[in-house]
Amino acid sequence: MSFDLALTKRIGTTEIALTLEPGPGVGSGATILFGRSGVGKTSVLNMVAGLLRPDAGHVRVGGETLFGDGVDVPPERRRAGYVFQEPRLFPHLRVRGNLLYGAPRGAEIGDRLDFLGIGGLLDRWPRTLSGGEARRVAIGRVLLSDPRFLLLDEPLSSLDRPRREEVMQAIEHMRDVLRLPILMVTHDPEEAERLGTRVVRMG
């Protein structure tokens, strides 16, 4: 499965433009959108997820058009596993409720998320979680929603070094073991170097 993106969008005075053609390193592994703050990296993820409408262009993933050619698939039908910059856990649901929110009806958590080490958090409320725990729950919630690909928006920001390592390993697991195509935003060269199979500079 590969990302095939051609996007333009004007937000205020910022002109966002990105072309990402399918090719080696784009179909599998992690494609890193790398660049300074404010160049529109998050907006690109939002456009791929269907949360922001491009002015022009197309979004194709695995050959399926999600936007363009008169098509605009709503976010809930894109099956994009979007891990936002902040965990965005639902505060009125416990961790278990958050994890199962996007899962098929009757699904159970099972052992699929063992690699995240969140089994002991299931009955906790989101407000009681540490930053690293909340981030791992957010990743687990996305994985249980059965995504076709992952969008990761600076998933390691605002974490201390031990927590960064935990989440970094979780991303490597998703990339190498679960083999989910990843489009990830970062402005950290070290993250880009370690996680990216292809790095795309923006701005």
């Binding site: 997820a49 269907g50 949360l51 709503p74 976010p75 809930e76 039908r77 894109r78 099956r79 994009a80 596993g81 979007y82 936002f84 902040e86 965005r88 639902f90 505060p91 929110y101 996007g102 919630r141 996305v142 929603s145």
Partner: peptide
């Protein structure tokens, strides 16, 4: 209500 939570729910498959 934080509309970012609503966006998160949409990407998780909720209409």
């Amino acid at each position: 209500v934080d509309q970012r939570l609503e966006s998160a729910a949409r990407t998780l498959g909720a209409g």
